[in-house]
Design a protein around this nucleic acid. Structure first.
Length: 419
RNA sequence: GGCCCCAUCGUCUAACGGUUAGGACGAUACCCUUUCAAGGUGUAAAUCGGGGUUCGAUUCCCCGUGGGGCUACCA
């Protein structure tokens, strides 16, 4: 995978990385990260770190590249400038390229047909006549993508190139370069492009775009991987919930689609719900750290996880469900929800009733149910009243498990506030 | 404009040339239910159009239409 550090990669670029990684792992190959920073104008400071952060967050480790090194380094193109210049010079000397206003342009031979067996599309061919002479070395001495990618893929012994469909029309240029340089081209596979909701190529203007943004919104790496994997690919058995391990076993380039999928956030949400539910409480607690106050007691939080897991879509949902257990409702609010005399009367009776009840969720529930039914009050509205008084909200975790966690003293205290 | 890629429910997708065109998300109805969820059972929802080939096309071919990409000294 060869990202360009001209910004933070969005879901589309990241999915390309994922497919490359899966393909490499599924075939006992090597996953190589090479940084293509030959566009000096658009270089964005710090994006290389972000790129690696994304890969690390998702668990896509690389065999060669930044940080880990490798036999064919350096893996940063700006550090390989001499190499590109050397080959540009050779091409010029052989008359296959020429200088043009400080840059070097490759001479396209007319009347030829360039074709390759694309691993996802099948055979694709181009007439060389539709291509114009193209720049391979810019006037600032840096190569264009075309020269750099060919020189490096050859030098680094790259066997397979999986990239986005947007590169299809450039492939003949690369084929020409391989041919003139006397090298054997790698196998190409072009992946369908992920489209935004407006059906145009995914880009910055489609809202939160990078995996890091989704991570910060509370999506798990598992969900993101699962979601991206199924955009343009599906396993033979149509299974949907897939871990990285399972994906490696099932991934096959033959099952990659040719049509451009559209990014669908609802499905991402669904995956996140599924994956959060699969997490152990201990693991979920760890992932929750960035999204909850530091002073929330660990045992307390963990104890509420079974209930919370069932209803969370993103990590920050946890705090909104449990917040009411940590903060007493405002008195003005309590006074307002318990205005009616009959409500106050009920709370008074319930209060004294609770005094003799053991605060264990199941017990609390059966006893309370009996109590309310005996009073002939409406179940829903009555429990909603209690919920509002004790937890200060309409949407909370199940009432009685919350009671158990909070303890008798605290619950009674809060109820007293209403009378 | 030119070149290239693509075309199954709203979305992600499945279907050796023979299926009542399947699944999932979302939507919706009902059940369950102390809220919200979750869960359960249903429902609606698709082969872009026209020609071929074939006993038979979602599937193969052609044309059209639609969408996307490229057309930079960006990747």
């Amino acid at each position: 995978i060869a990202p360009s550090p001209t910004g933070i990669p969005h879901i589309g670029n990241t999915r390309t990385a994922l497919f490359n990684w899966l393909f490499a792992r599924a075939n006992n190959g090597k996953f190589i990260v090479r940084v293509e920073d030959t566009d000096r104008q658009r270089l964005v400071e710090g994006s290389l770190e972000k790129i690696l952060e994304i890969l690390e967050f998702l668990g896509l480790d690389w065999n060669e590249g930044p940080k880990v090194g490798g036999d064919f380094g350096p893996y940063i193109q700006s550090e390989r400038k001499d190499l590109y210049q050397k080959y540009a010079k050779i091409l010029v000397e052989k008359g296959m390229a020429y200088e043009d206003e400080g840059a070097v342009r490759f001479k396209v031979e007319k009347g030829k047909i360039w074709k390759w067996d694309d691993q996802v599309h099948g055979e694709i061919s181009f007439k060389s006549d539709v291509l114009e002479d193209f720049v391979i070395l810019k006037s600032d001495g840096f190569p264009t993508y075309h020269l750099a990618v060919v020189v490096d893929d050859n030098a680094m012994k790259i066997s397979h190139v999986l990239r986005g469909d947007e590169w299809i029309s450039s492939t003949p240029k690369h084929l020409m370069l391989y041919s003139k340089l006397g090298w054997k081209p790698p196998v190409f596979g072009h992946l369908p492009l992920i489209l935004g909701p407006d059906k145009s190529k995914l880009s910055k203007r489609h809202g939160a775009q990078s995996v890091l943004d989704y991570r910060d919104e509370g999506y798990l790496a598992e969900s993101l991987i699962n979601f991206m994997a199924l955009l343009g690919w599906s396993p033979k058995d149509n299974q949907e919930i897939l871990s990285l391990e399972v994906l490696i076993k099932k991934f096959d380039l033959k099952d990659v689609n040719t049509t451009n999928p559209i990014f669908n956030r609802d499905k991402l949400d669904w995956f996140n719900r599924k994956w959060i539910k699969k997490l152990s409480n201990e693991d979920l607690y760890l992932r929750l750290q960035p999204f909850i106050p530091k002073d929330w007691d660990k045992n307390y939080v963990v104890a509420s996880l079974d209930d919370a897991k069932e209803r969370m879509t993103i990590l920050p949902d946890f705090a909104t469900f449990v917040k009411g257990e940590f903060e007493r409702p405002k008195t003005v609010y309590v006074k307002r929800v318990a205005q009616k005399p009959e409500d106050k009367k009920f709370i008074k009776e319930y209060l004294s009733f609770l005094g003799n009840v053991e605060f264990i969720s199941g017990n609390l529930e059966t006893k309370s149910l009996e109590f309310v039914k005996g009073s002939k009050l409406d179940l829903r509205s009555t429990f909603m009243l209690v919920r509002r008084i004790v937890l200060g909200a309409d949407i909370t975790l199940p009432l009685f498990s919350a009671f158990e966690r909070m303890g008798k003293e605290e619950v009674l205290e809060r109820l007293k506030n209403a009378i």
